[in-house]
Design a protein around this nucleic acid. Structure first.
Length: 238
DNA sequence: AACCTGCCCAACCGCAGGAAG
DNA sequence: CCTTCCTGCGGTTGGGCAGGT
């Protein structure tokens, strides 16, 4: 199949309550231009839109917001997505944060429709020789990704002890434990450090790193420089 | 030309975390 | 603390389109 035409709201869609019309887009854009991105729940009523606040938010973030790139994901971007997914798993919002102009929804869709298919095909080929492990990995090492929120991954909020205890392998150590672990085996400590890495653009990428540094005091230079995530953006100077 | 099938992607839903009262 | 509301995230769904028959 060839390139698809972009879908345009309105026209025959005018009667649909699901699809956004051009007029609704205009109304939403104008409202946000004046009032800003907040109070999503009140927005539909105030703006006179027959949509939910969440729907408005989604429409704005994924489609109307200035700077959104649409379609034509380049080979370089695809490579980046694959590398990041390898390290982060399905952290679409985090991955999107590292691809300026791309939304989590778009990346998720791209992954589900294209990349995962490619990977499946590759796995089928590989199956004949070796059993594959779908877990995200770093280099040759398997990486368990705990089920944490983005803020938890970034070290911006506390991780409840209950969720940490679900698996001993994925529990985050205390600063003291982490330091000891790093001294004993720097490689073993690497996977958790990924959570400090991901943030929107590289202007801010060091901010969560610093937070983790304060928190765990284990941001050893060698660990960071060895970590594969840096290779995700080979052009970037650190 | 009409119908069928698979693909794509916008939009929805449920859940969880955070903030405010 | 507890409750309520808001926001954000990831999984899933459903409608429309392109290509095949």
């Amino acid at each position: 199949m060839g390139e698809r035409r972009p879908r345009i709201s309105g026209g025959s869609d005018e009667g649909s309550s699901r699809r956004w019309t051009a007029m609704e887009d205009k109304t939403l854009t104008e409202y946000i231009r004046i009032n800003g991105e907040r109070q999503w729940n009140c927005l539909p009523q105030n703006a006179g839109l027959k949509k939910s606040g969440r729907s408005c938010r989604l429409r704005w973030l994924n489609y109307l917001k200035p700077g959104i790139k649409r379609g034509n994901i380049s080979q370089k971007e695809e490579d980046t997505i694959i590398r990041l997914h390898k390290n982060l798993g399905n952290r679409w919002s985090v991955i999107a944060g590292l691809l300026p102009g791309r939304t989590d929804n778009e990346i998720k869709n791209y992954w589900n429709t294209k990349i995962s298919k490619k990977i499946k095909e590759d796995d089928c080929k590989a199956d004949s020789t070796t059993s594959s492990d779908p877990k995200p990995s770093i280099g040759h090492e398997s990486l368990e990704v705990p089920n944490l929120t983005t803020k938890q991954q970034l070290g911006l909020c506390e991780v409840p002890q209950t969720s940490l205890n679900e698996s001993d392998e994925t529990s985050i150590p205390s600063p003291e434990e982490a330091r000891m672990e790093l001294e004993d085996d720097p490689v073993a400590a690497q996977p958790r450090d990924i959570y400090g890495v991901v943030h929107e653009h590289f202007e801010t990428i060091l901010s969560p790193v610093r937070i983790c540094e304060d928190k765990w005091q284990l941001m050893h230079d060698d660990v960071w420089m060895d970590f594969e995530i840096w290779n995700t953006f080979p052009d970037q100077q650190y």
